[in-house]
């Protein structure tokens, strides 16, 4: 079994688990409230079992016909590449950036972390010049400031402080 097929089946298993949980949770609801989610969840479970069989068969057929895309890693081709492996290694840094941004927002609020995030990302990943990075960030900050002043829009405030508030 190729890594990709294993992942796809795992994905479907997780979906099935969620549906099972939904079925279980819905048992306590009044009839009108549980009818629709229960019917849909059962349909999803049934279709998932069909789809998992179809998926396995598709992979087998592809292997028989010698389609190289069914296993192995292919950079740049999102078609049949498994997540675990090269794709994850390519993607992980950006997921890390995202996590850092969220942590920043949680700790010091959106405005401050957005400013730090954009400058850092533009410099380190975008390889932009200091001028361009600061200019872009400045424009973004000005836009945020304008929106909050003119229209009373709000952003998340940090756990500790929000220097721009």
């Amino acid at each position: 079994m190729s890594q990709r097929l294993r992942e796809e089946l795992l994905f479907m298993a997780v979906l099935a688990g969620l549906m099972g949980a939904a079925l279980y949770m819905a048992t306590g609801y009044p009839f009108t409230a549980r009818l629709m989610p229960q019917v849909v969840a059962i349909a999803v479970l049934a279709l998932l079992s069909v789809e998992s069989v179809l998926t396995v068969r598709r992979y087998r057929a592809a292997r028989r016909s010698g389609d190289p895309a069914s296993d192995g890693e292919h950079v740049g081709d999102t078609g049949n590449e498994p997540v675990w492996g090269a794709k994850f290694r390519r993607t992980a840094p950006y997921l890390g950036w995202l996590a850092a941004l969220y942590l920043g927002i949680y700790l010091i609020g959106l405005t401050a972390s957005a400013a730090i995030f954009t400058v850092a990302f533009c410099r380190l990943v975008g390889k932009m010049s200091w001028l361009a990075a600061l200019l872009g960030t400045g424009l973004l900050m000005a836009a945020l400031f304008g929106l909050s002043e003119a229209f009373n829009m709000r952003w998340p405030v940090g756990y500790f402080f929000d220097p721009f508030r």
Partner: peptide
């Protein structure tokens, strides 16, 4: 890489 951070912030806002 040159526009993603701005787009991301705008979308989160």
């Amino acid at each position: 890489a040159k526009f993603a951070p701005f787009l991301l912030i705008v979308m989160m806002v």
